[in-house]
Amino acid sequence: MTNNPRTQPPQMPVGTVLPIGLVVLGFPLLAAPVFQTTGCHCLAPAATATAPAASTPAPVATAPAPAVTPTPTATSAETTIPTRAPAGAGLPAPLVALLRTEGPYLANEVYSVIPAEPLGPIEEADAAPEWYAITRGRFVGVVDQFALSAVAISGVAHAARKAYTTQRLALDAFNQALTWAGVQVV
């Protein structure tokens, strides 16, 4: 098979600077359709001319690069530091009213901060079927209501809630996590 210029694209010599800013180093490249930037900042194929009978590539016209205007940098007054939403943000107003931030630290209370001391038991009027120790959630504590514990962990990645049959078991588990620094308000 012979090197027919009509059936094979022309080759570019080594060291040729391509219109897109690349230099052919050490090996010949086949001339392919070159894309150029148009005024709308999208890629469109450049106008191609038929290759002459000689092995020299056809010159490709390039459009001038659009002027780039520097973007102003933000001053320190415009820079915002991401802040953490306060505990209880996004909770219904009646539930936010239940959140406590200080002692006395007792069971069946929910806290928007990590309690400073272990939780104490409360006297039960009616024995609850289950107690829930919430150690990682939107708020923490030991409660006897499943719905309240579900709100505490909803939307929290790696939330931690466990059900216990008695208040004493739930309090022991919560207080043990508290001493091991395993309680987190997210």
Results as ranks from 00 to 15, higher is better:
residue 179 T to H: 03
residue 168 R to M: 01
residue 2 T to N: 13
residue 121 P to H: 02
residue 13 P to S: 12
residue 150 A to M: 12
residue 105 Y to M: 06
residue 123 E to Y: 03
residue 44 A to L: 04
residue 150 A to Y: 09
residue 119 L to A: 07
residue 14 V to C: 06
residue 169 L to Y: 02
residue 118 P to L: 05
residue 99 L to K: 11
residue 158 H to N: 15
residue 17 V to Y: 11
residue 1 M to V: 08
residue 184 Q to G: 02
residue 27 F to Q: 14
residue 97 A to L: 13
residue 108 N to V: 04
residue 59 P to L: 07
residue 79 T to D: 03
residue 117 E to L: 11
residue 164 Y to N: 06
residue 184 Q to A: 11
residue 169 L to M: 04
residue 70 P to T: 05
residue 134 I to H: 02
residue 31 A to S: 09
residue 151 V to Q: 15
residue 128 A to F: 06
residue 153 I to V: 15
residue 149 S to M: 15
residue 5 P to C: 07
residue 34 V to P: 04
residue 130 E to N: 09
residue 174 F to I: 00
residue 80 T to F: 03
residue 7 T to D: 10
residue 10 P to M: 00
residue 11 Q to Y: 11
residue 150 A to F: 07
residue 126 D to P: 00
residue 116 A to G: 13
residue 13 P to Q: 14
residue 51 A to V: 11
residue 95 L to Y: 14
residue 50 T to W: 00
residue 157 A to C: 05
residue 40 C to M: 04
residue 24 V to H: 05
residue 167 Q to E: 12
residue 40 C to K: 15
residue 157 A to K: 15
residue 50 T to R: 01
residue 182 G to F: 03
residue 23 V to C: 08
residue 177 A to D: 07
residue 60 V to T: 12
residue 68 V to M: 10
residue 109 E to P: 00
residue 58 A to M: 09
residue 84 R to K: 13
residue 169 L to I: 00
residue 66 P to I: 10
residue 97 A to C: 04
residue 78 E to L: 14
residue 156 V to R: 03
residue 134 I to N: 01
residue 124 E to K: 07
residue 182 G to Y: 02
residue 93 A to L: 13
residue 179 T to C: 00
residue 55 S to W: 06
residue 58 A to S: 13
residue 99 L to P: 14
residue 79 T to G: 04
residue 109 E to Q: 10
residue 10 P to C: 02
residue 90 G to A: 09
residue 107 A to Q: 05
residue 168 R to N: 03
residue 110 V to E: 07
residue 83 T to E: 12
residue 185 V to D: 02
residue 34 V to W: 13
residue 175 N to I: 00
residue 163 A to S: 15
residue 168 R to C: 00
residue 104 P to A: 09
residue 139 F to M: 12
residue 185 V to H: 02
residue 67 A to K: 06
residue 57 P to N: 11
residue 138 R to G: 09
residue 73 T to W: 14
residue 79 T to N: 06
residue 124 E to S: 06
residue 183 V to A: 02
residue 134 I to M: 10
residue 10 P to I: 01
residue 68 V to G: 08
residue 65 A to V: 13
residue 85 A to T: 08
residue 96 V to S: 10
residue 139 F to Q: 04
residue 155 G to K: 10
residue 170 A to D: 06
residue 30 L to T: 15
residue 132 Y to K: 05
residue 165 T to R: 10
residue 122 I to V: 15
residue 16 T to M: 15
residue 102 E to P: 00
residue 7 T to S: 08
residue 20 I to P: 00
residue 83 T to K: 12
residue 36 Q to E: 07
residue 53 A to Y: 02
residue 37 T to Y: 02
residue 118 P to G: 09
residue 11 Q to A: 10
residue 174 F to Y: 05
residue 164 Y to P: 00
residue 78 E to K: 12
residue 74 A to R: 12
residue 42 C to R: 14
residue 71 T to L: 13
residue 25 L to M: 07
residue 150 A to G: 06
residue 48 T to M: 12
residue 81 I to P: 03
residue 92 P to A: 15
residue 181 A to C: 05
residue 127 A to C: 00
residue 62 T to H: 08
residue 89 A to Y: 14
residue 48 T to H: 05
